[in-house]
């Protein structure tokens, strides 16, 4: 299965992926209108280390802790993609407690959001990757298929 992978050497720390993610999931047509002067809730986060920056999003784990732990049964794996039904989420943060990568965070209404690879929004493939100016994140097949 194709996933998003990180080439941290190439990351500029520009945070463009966060904006592209928030826009792709906003359902709006105009980026400025969708994001200007608003707090954004992207599903990918650029982490700043000492001398290093890199973008973190869901790994779509082979054996996902979040799916097994969600107290509402809101997270499921479908064809390898780990998805969340936000209407069932009650915001208890148990998924945050168990995700080893820090890949989930609450959205604007307090229910959880995570990367679902843009397969169902208008983008159709990860908008973060498409917009990355330096190929610091890529969307490709690596390792064994499931």
């Amino acid at each position: 299965m194709k996933r998003v992978y990180v080439n941290e050497e190439w990351c500029l720390g520009c945070h463009l992926c966060e904006y592209n993610c928030a826009f792709a999931n906003s359902g709006m047509k105009d980026m400025a209108f969708a994001l200007k002067d608003k707090k954004i809730f992207p599903r990918i986060h650029v982490e700043d280390g000492d001398k290093i920056t890199f973008a973190v999003s869901c790994r779509h784990c082979t054996d996902p802790n979040c799916v097994k732990s969600c107290i509402a049964g809101a997270i499921s794996k479908q064809d390898g993609v780990v998805k969340i039904d936000r209407s069932k989420c009650v915001g208890c943060l148990t998924c945050v407690l168990v995700c080893p990568y820090g890949a989930l965070a609450p959205g604007e209404n307090g229910t959880m959001q995570k990367c679902e690879l843009c397969l169902e929004n208008s983008c159709g493939e990860p908008a973060c990757v498409t917009g990355c100016p330096n190929k610091a994140i890529v969307y490709e097949e690596r390792g064994a298929a499931e």
Binding site: R3, Y5, V6, E8, D50, F54, V56, Y101, R142, A144
Partner: peptide
């Protein structure tokens, strides 16, 4: 995730 070495991070974010 910045607390880990580059090597460990490569495994976490560059592999399945």
């Amino acid at each position: 995730n910045a607390i880990f070495s580059r090597e460990i991070r490569r495994k976490k974010f560059g592999g399945v």
